[in-house]
Simulated assay, not measured.
Amino acid sequence: MQGHQGQVVIRLPAEILPACVTLRHVDPELTPAGFSSSAPGEFAVFGLDVDSEEEVPLGSFSFNVRKAPLQTFLLENNHSRAFRYIKVLVKSNWGHPEYTCIYRVQVHGKVVEKMAV
Rank of each mutant, 00 (worst) to 15 (best):
Q71N: 08
L89S: 14
V117F: 13
F35G: 00
A82W: 01
V45W: 00
N93M: 11
A82Y: 05
G95L: 07
D49E: 12
W94S: 05
F73N: 09
A116S: 15
N64M: 10
F61W: 07
E29T: 11
E98S: 13
Y103A: 09
M1V: 12
T31Q: 11
E55N: 09
P97I: 09
Q106Y: 01
Q106L: 09
R81G: 06
N64E: 12
Y99E: 11
I10D: 09
P32K: 14
S36M: 10
P69L: 03
P28H: 06
Y99P: 00
L23V: 10
V65N: 04
F43M: 06
G34Y: 08
S60I: 05
L48C: 12
P18I: 02
Q7V: 07
P40L: 10
K87S: 14
H4F: 09
C101H: 12
P13M: 06
V88C: 14
S62Y: 12
P28N: 15
A116R: 15
H108N: 11
E42C: 09
P32F: 08
S36Y: 03
L58I: 07
F73Q: 07
E98I: 07
A33S: 15
D51W: 06
V111F: 10
F83C: 04
E29W: 01
Q2L: 12
V65P: 00
L89N: 13
F63V: 09
N64Y: 10
L75E: 05
S92D: 11
L17Y: 14
C20M: 10
E76W: 07
S36F: 06
V90P: 00
D49S: 07
S37Y: 06
Q2N: 13
R11Q: 15
V107C: 04
F83Q: 03
F73M: 05
P40A: 12
V56G: 00
A39C: 15
R24G: 02
P57L: 08
P57T: 07
P69Q: 01
S92P: 06
F46I: 04
E15W: 03
E113Q: 14
N64R: 12
T72W: 04
S52C: 10
V107P: 00
F46E: 09
G41E: 03
G59C: 05
F46V: 05
V117N: 10
G109Q: 01
V107Q: 00
Q106H: 04
G59K: 03
G95S: 07
V90H: 01
P13Q: 11
C20A: 15
A14C: 15
K91L: 15
Y99S: 12
D27A: 06
F83K: 01
G6T: 05
N93L: 08
V112N: 02
D27K: 02
S62G: 01
I16N: 02
R24Y: 03
S52D: 14
V107W: 00
V8L: 11
Q71D: 07
K114H: 13
L74N: 07
V56D: 09
M115C: 12
